[in-house]
Every structure is written in structure tokens, then in C-alpha cells.
Simulated assay, not measured.
Amino acid sequence: MSRNSRRTRILFVIHSLGYGGAERVLTDLVKNLDSRAYEIAVCTFYDPPGFRTEIEEANIEVHFLEKKRRLDVALVVRLARLMRKLKPDVVSMHCRDAFNIGTPASMLARIPTRIATEHSVGSGRSQFLNRLAFTFFSRRWNATIAVSQFLKDFMVQTWGIPTSRIRVIYNGIDLGRVDYVGDRNELRRVLGLSSQALIVGNVGTLKIEKGHGAFLEAASRIASKNEAVHFVMIGDGPLMNDLADQARQLGISSRTHFMGARTDAVRLAAGFDVFLSTSNVETFGLAAVEAMLLGVPIVGFDVGSMREIVTDKENGFLVSPRDTSGAAERVLSLLEDAYLRESMGKRARVSAESRFSLPVMIDHYSQLLSAR
């Protein structure tokens, strides 16, 4: 960062730049803020394969300060030292680790403006500690952002942050990444399937919160009614082997495709006929929104922020949580009616473009930064 620049200097702090929803959103944000108005750097505590190269290719500095233990006081000091060197006008912190390390560091470095963006509700086991941390730290933030109304309500009710101190800024998707509508056969070519094959898919980390077990239960019901359907999961995670075992037990392993983590996940998802979301909780359904922008209709459990994204019977279907029978029925209704599938997909795209595009998110963040 140049000390002589008249641009607003912003240091973004996030736990990691590995492949994930919050990391994708931050990457798009830092790459697309107006470089004439802002001078940007990023700091991260873990360095797995992910978006770091993409950010650096946009001529944005990425600083890696390794977090060596759960409670790493030395990291607070090292981050404060980096802040004194870079002299940012604003520190923008994303996710829990960034709050816990970045807030005291920015106080030590006497940074004038602190912004905190929360992307998830966290785990139940950590809620008490989260409440203590948020109660203390949130009073030191100039602005607090939630990525959905559901998350804002959760932060007010569970963590005790006054509603007046939280604003909602929805995540925005780079439309350039989802300009593949109509290229439904690429996924079929990769899988060696007929162009006539129907595909129900999901994109997400294979962990318990994402409810992939329920996805497979619904898939089993769908498979028993329609022999042309295949099921695709794009993503990796700790439950990969367990889910593969479940697919075998349900007798659908030959029609279930585990594709692992893919850098081309969005392009492949253009081949879905239906996106099935069976998450146990959804703070912001980034993968579902990307599917909508691809013109793919959504069937999802009515949890978390899903009703902010999907208008039931308009641009998708919502069913009660854990209702795999109801989800299967809704998916089958779309698979059996090409006109309904296409028209609902078109409405999904229009809705997502107007509310969840990257320019909309950039505009909201720019307004916030200009008003600091």
C-alpha cells in the first residue's frame, strides 16, 4: 500500500482464501471495488489452495500471517504490526476468526474504521463464546453486516447485537462466471451420459450442515419413479465416504456421481435440470443463487435464508425441513414438465440478477465506505 495515495486504503481480513462461499464473495468484492477510489490489501491466517492466486493476479497484495494455535495472542500482535505498516483507513473483517484477531489488532494499531461482515451462524457448541465475543467486539465496530435477513435476526436474537447496528448486504455473484445458460451438455459429456439424461444436482461442501444425506434420501425416492435421472454432488468434505456408502445402501450408486471439489463447478452446474438444496441451515444459499442465475429451478428445504432467495411456486419450490418425500415430489414435477422447468428457471434468473448480482453488492459496499 502506498502511503502517499489519496485513495481510501482498505485491509480485508479473512481466516482463509480456500475454496468456499465467503472466500469467493470476498475475492469478487476486492477485485471489483473501484481501484481509482480504493487501495486494497488482503490478510489471511491459513493458506490452502484457493483464491489467493486470483486475487494476486488482480495486482492486490495478499499477506499471510499463519495462525498457529486456537488462541494465538502473538497473531494479534503480528497483525497489529502489519496494520501499522500498511496504515489502512478501514479494516474490513470477514468471519469469526477475522473478528477475534482483527478487532483487537485494529484497536492496537488505532485504525479509525472497522467493518465486520458475518457470513454464517457458526456451530451450536460455540454460541456462548460467540455471544461473549460479539458483545465485546461489536461495540468497537463502525458497521456490522449480515449477508441475509435471517442472519441479522439470528445475530440480534442469539448474540444480542441491537438491530439498528446491523445492515443486510446480500452476497453478489459475478454474472460473468454464470454466463453458460444453455450449455447443459458439458456436464453430461464429463460424466459420459446421454444428452437426454436428466440431472438433479447440488454444489457444496460435504459436511453435516449441508444435509447431503437427505439429498440422497430424496434421490432414492426420485430414482424409483424415473429411470432417466442421475444425481450429481459437486464438492468435497469429511462425509464423502459416508455418503458414498449411503448411496450404495439405497441402491442408487450407479446413478449418483460424486465429483469432488471443482474449479469449474458453476460451469458444470449449468447442466443441472433441478438444483436440490437439503441444507439443515442456510445463512445465504450462494450455490443456489448461482444455479438460479444459470436458469436452473430450485427445490429446497425451507430453512434459514432460503425463503429470501426462493419465492415458493414462483421461481422454485420450498418444502418443510427434512421432508424428503415432499422434495422428491417437487423435483419430479419439474423433471416431468419441461415447460414448467424452463419457465421457472427463467423467473429464477431474473429474480437473482436483480437482487444478487455483483454490481448490486459492490454498490452497497461502496455506499457504506463512502459514508464512513
Score class of each variant (00 low, 15 high):
I10W: 06
Y19L: 15
A22Q: 09
D34I: 10
R36K: 15
Y38W: 08
A41D: 12
T44A: 13
T53W: 10
E57Y: 07
N59R: 14
I60N: 02
E61M: 08
V62R: 06
F64K: 07
L65D: 03
L71C: 09
L75I: 11
V77F: 13
V77K: 11
A80N: 04
M83I: 11
K85C: 10
L86Y: 04
D89A: 11
V90G: 02
M93Y: 06
P104R: 03
L108D: 07
R114Y: 04
I115K: 05
S120N: 14
S120C: 11
V121H: 12
S123L: 15
S126V: 13
Q127L: 15
T135C: 12
F136K: 12
R140W: 14
T144P: 00
V147A: 05
Q149A: 14
F150D: 09
V156N: 05
T158N: 12
T163S: 15
I166R: 06
I169Q: 09
Y170N: 10
G172Y: 11
I173N: 03
L175V: 14
L175N: 05
R177F: 12
R188P: 02
S195D: 14
V200F: 00
G201R: 00
L206N: 02
G213M: 01
F215Y: 10
A219N: 01
S220M: 03
K225L: 04
A228G: 11
V229Y: 00
H230Y: 03
H230N: 07
F231L: 01
M233I: 06
I234E: 00
G235Y: 02
D236E: 14
P238Y: 01
Q246G: 01
G251R: 07
I252F: 05
R255S: 08
S279M: 05
N280A: 10
E282P: 05
T283F: 00
G285Q: 01
L286F: 05
M292R: 06
L294G: 02
V296M: 06
P297C: 08
V303N: 00
I309N: 03
I309H: 02
K313Q: 13
K313R: 13
E314Q: 13
F317Y: 13
D323Y: 03
G326M: 04
A328R: 00
A328H: 00
E329S: 10
L335I: 05
E342D: 13
S343W: 07
S357N: 08
L358D: 11
D363L: 12
